[in-house]
C-alpha cells in the first residue's frame, strides 16, 4: 500500500509544531501548528534566517543547542521548566494562563537528506501550557501552605514552632558573625481578669489588636511570634541590651496608652516584658533568661520592662 499521501495531512493536523532548518539555520519548513499560532505564511519566509522569521528568539542560547545537534548528530532538548518558551506562539488558554505565550517542550533532532550529505535540524514543539498552569497553581498552594505553617491562626504573627526555629538560626548567625542579638518575652498582665470580664472573645480581640499594634512598632527584620496563650516573643537581630530595652519600653508605653473599643466599651491592657541579650547561649538558655526577667517585671508591679542580670536569679530564689 502506498502511504506517501499520509504525510501531508498528518503534518497539517499534527498537534505538535514541526519546524525544519537547514545547516545555516534558515527556515525550510514549518507545519500549520506553527503557521497559525505565529501568523506566518511559509511561502513568504521560506529560506530566511531563523532569527529573522521569529521575533525575540533567545538566539545565542538556541544556536548553542543547534550547534550540538549539527556537530554531534544527537538530539537536544529544552523543557518549559527551564525555559518557558523558545518561539513566541499563541496558546489556546488565554484565560487560565498568566502567560501570553505557549509554554513549550522542544526536541531538536538531526536529519540527513536522502543524498546522505545535507544536514537539517527538525524542531518539534509541544504545547506544555497545561502543565505550566498546574505548576503555577501548585506553587501558589505550596506558598499558602508554607504561610499557614508558620503563622499563628489567631493573631497572624509567627507560631511558636517557626519562631523558635528562627531563634535558633539567629543565634547561630549572631555567634558566627559576632553580632549582638536580643530577645523580648512579654505577657499580658492579668489576662485572666480580661477573659472573665469580657469573655474569651474579648480576650481574643485584645490579643489580635495588641499583636497588630506591636507589629507596627517593629522593624522588618524583627521576628514576632506567639509563644503560647498570652505570652509572646520578639527576636531583635543586631540589637544589644541598650537598644532592646528602648524597644521594650516603647512597646510597654504604647500598649498602656492604647485604647481599644470592644462592644461599645473601651478596653485597656498592659504588658510586662523580660529582656535578654545573647552571649554565647543556647536557645533554651536565652529564653530562660528572658523568662526570668519577665518574672521579675511581674513581681515588680507589672506594666514594665526588666533587663536580665545575673542578680535576678538570686531575687528569684528569695521570692520562691
Amino acid at each position: 500500500m502506498q502511504l506517501d499521501w499520509l504525510l501531508q495531512p498528518l503534518l497539517t493536523q499534527l498537534n505538535t509544531g514541526v519546524l525544519v532548518l537547514d545547516a545555516q539555520y534558515r527556515v525550510v519548513f514549518f507545519n500549520q501548528f506553527i503557521a497559525r499560532r505565529a501568523e506566518l505564511d511559509l511561502a513568504r519566509v521560506q529560506g530566511n534566517l531563523l532569527e529573522d522569521v521569529f521575533a525575540d528568539l533567545p538566539i545565542a542560547w538556541l544556536k548553542r543547542k543547534l550547534d550540538s545537534v549539527l556537530h554531534l548528530q544527537v538530539p537536544a532538548f529544552s523543557s518549559w521548566e527551564q525555559r518557558q518558551y523558545i518561539v513566541k506562539l499563541a496558546h489556546l488558554r488565554p484565560l487560565s494562563s498568566d502567560s501570553q505565550y505557549m509554554a513549550q517542550n522542544c526536541s531538536m533532532l538531526p536529519l540527513t537528506a536522502p543524498d546522505g550529505v545535507s544536514r537539517y535540524i527538525c524542531l518539534l514543539i509541544e504545547d506544555a501550557t497545561d502543565a505550566y498552569v498546574y505548576q503555577q497553581q501548585l506553587q501558589q498552594s505550596v506558598m499558602q501552605l508554607e504561610h499557614a505553617n508558620r503563622t499563628d491562626g489567631l493573631t497572624g504573627v509567627y507560631n511558636r514552632c517557626y519562631w523558635q526555629q528562627q531563634l535558633g538560626y539567629e543565634i547561630q548567625r549572631a555567634g558566627r558573625y559576632q553580632h549582638p542579638l536580643s530577645l523580648l518575652l512579654f505577657d499580658l498582665d492579668k489576662f485572666k481578669d480580661l477573659n472573665d470580664q469580657y469573655g474569651h472573645q474579648g480576650g481574643d480581640f485584645v490579643l489580635i489588636e495588641l499583636s497588630r499594634l506591636i507589629d507596627s512598632l517593629l522593624r522588618d527584620t524583627d521576628l514576632f511570634g506567639r509563644y503560647g496563650g498570652e505570652e509572646f516573643g520578639i527576636i531583635l537581630p543586631d540589637t544589644g541590651m541598650t537598644g532592646a530595652l528602648q524597644v521594650a519600653n516603647r512597646i510597654c508605653d504604647t500598649v498602656a496608652r492604647h485604647k481599644m473599643l470592644y462592644n461599645q466599651q473601651t478596653l485597656k491592657a498592659t504588658i510586662s516584658i523580660g529582656v535578654a541579650s545573647y552571649f554565647d547561649h543556647s536557645v533554651d538558655e536565652l529564653i530562660q533568661r528572658a523568662d526570668t526577667a519577665l518574672y521579675c517585671a511581674k513581681r515588680q508591679g507589672r506594666n514594665r520592662a526588666v533587663a536580665y542580670q545575673p542578680e535576678l536569679e538570686g531575687y528569684l530564689k528569695k521570692v520562691k
Binding site: 545565542a60 542560547w61 548553542r64 543547542k65 550540538s68 554531534l72 544527537v74 538530539p75 537536544a76 532538548f77 529544552s78 523543557s79 521548566e81 527551564q82 525555559r83
Partner: peptide
C-alpha cells in the same frame, strides 16, 4: 559546554551535558 555566566540555570546545564554525553 562553553557557557559563560549567563542566564542558564544549573538544571538546564545538567540536562544539557547529560543529553550530550549520553546520546553521543
Amino acid at each position: 559546554l562553553g557557557y559563560s555566566d549567563d542566564a542558564v540555570s544549573e538544571a538546564e546545564m545538567l540536562t544539557d551535558i547529560s543529553s550530550v554525553l549520553t546520546t553521543t
